[in-house]
Design a protein around this nucleic acid. Sequence first.
DNA 1: CGGCAAATTGACTCCACTCAAAGGAGGTGG
DNA 2: CCACCTCCTTTGAGTGGAGTCAATTTGCCG
Lengths: 259, 259
Amino acid sequence: MKNYRLFVAESSAKPLSMRSQKKTGVACSQCNLSEICVPAGLSRDAIHQFEQIVHKSPTLHAGDHVFRQGDSFTTVAAVRSGCFKSYVIDEDGNEQVLGFHLPGELLGLDAIYPKKHVCNVIALDTGGVCNLSYEELQELSINLPDLQSQLFSTMSQRIGELNTIAGAYSADQRMAAFLLALSLRFESRGYSARSFNLVMSRSEIANYLRLATETVSRVLTGFRTKGLIRVKRKLVEILDHESLHEVAGSAFCKLENSI
Amino acid sequence: MKNYRLFVAESSAKPLSMRSQKKTGVACSQCNLSEICVPAGLSRDAIHQFEQIVHKSPTLHAGDHVFRQGDSFTTVAAVRSGCFKSYVIDEDGNEQVLGFHLPGELLGLDAIYPKKHVCNVIALDTGGVCNLSYEELQELSINLPDLQSQLFSTMSQRIGELNTIAGAYSADQRMAAFLLALSLRFESRGYSARSFNLVMSRSEIANYLRLATETVSRVLTGFRTKGLIRVKRKLVEILDHESLHEVAGSAFCKLENSI
DNA sequence: CGGCAAATTGACTCCACTCAAAGGAGGTGG
DNA sequence: CCACCTCCTTTGAGTGGAGTCAATTTGCCG
């Protein structure tokens, strides 16, 4: 199953996600993500109002940025399809991966307080986002209490996820938890929980988990020899979910809260 | 100071912060935290409305819990005075410190999504909190757009802070960043940025920074011999802010966003 | 088929952890 | 008021897990 991997043909070096937006044709109620995306839990009528502020981005290709560190903050974005990576470049020029984002997840929430984007978000494969003007979102939230609580909830969720990532865990625990969390997220989006493609490279995983690339490779090999998983390049198959869960230990139990 | 260890004298098993609350006498407009607490940026009239939903807790002593992992989520709490620690106990029984919280900061935001408290919050010294019913807070936010955006902003701020803690930094970097961040937070609350008391123990700092207690001790000694700080027990004096900043490197630059 | 980047594997190093023991500081009781 | 006890902190010695450096190997794509 190729799941979320889309074909990377077409013209590259696309414009930013904001430009040439199509307001029309956005129908959250028709979207198969409606259960896990922002409009989750909204009434039929509320969703209709919500649809009015959704600005569909053009197709984004691997390497296209949704926004960059330092950009002025005007919109948050919900992943419509594809996989995105958020990262920062620190003052030493080192990249630091903050997260991988699947369809239905909100991007740019950490920019609300500083009023400018503090991280970069880049497409890892072909996909698209729905842009939401933060101003409009705020206004609408005032009329739609459900939307407001949905937003609070989403941000709370991210706080919970970060609490977990920040934990002090071994390389094995981190990797196991990472695979299990990914599996769960794919499942909730209708893909196979047992076998999936890693869109991101080993070094991106390593960076996200605060490990060295070589360590990620070694840990995966270790899991394979123990019969926990099957790995072939990007394709991962979970063979022994039970044991993997044991390895992850407390590194995963909390991630379960954050789909 | 016994920090989180409950002294078994007195009527132990103290009442929760929620009980015997005094609704009266809460005047955010008179509070010296109004600049950095929840009502920051609200109009005079809005603050008055806000005051109606603030429930002042009785005085809390070192070891008293504000709420515990698993508690049903009904309120968030703003620190009024004192220093608090949030932590979780993982399935192996290990404590994991998530943060230290000074006056003006909001507690319990990570509970919104799961609808129950996912961490424990305990007083490190004598202090108090202002409890805010989340339901009332949501309702009020609908009428007070400024309050809503203040809440979004606060949560965003916490997300930014966590992004930093989650980073891959050396023991020296973490410790330096921790001291600088604390210094800044004290300063914005009207205390000295140059010399302050660590309310928390070495082991709590270590746990928070994902280091061993001995490492914290060694790093502090190292900083002292290099003339960066003066340390005597809990008292810390920052002698060479410049160099400390250099040591912290990129571990701190981001923390600056999160007062 | 050749060139290139990603991934794996191996050898070695080092930072931070663990184990262990020796100082302080503060509190308690005689 | 002092002695004692306990807990926190510091310091030392040794270990180990993950990082670094380096050499292949693998797969991709022109």
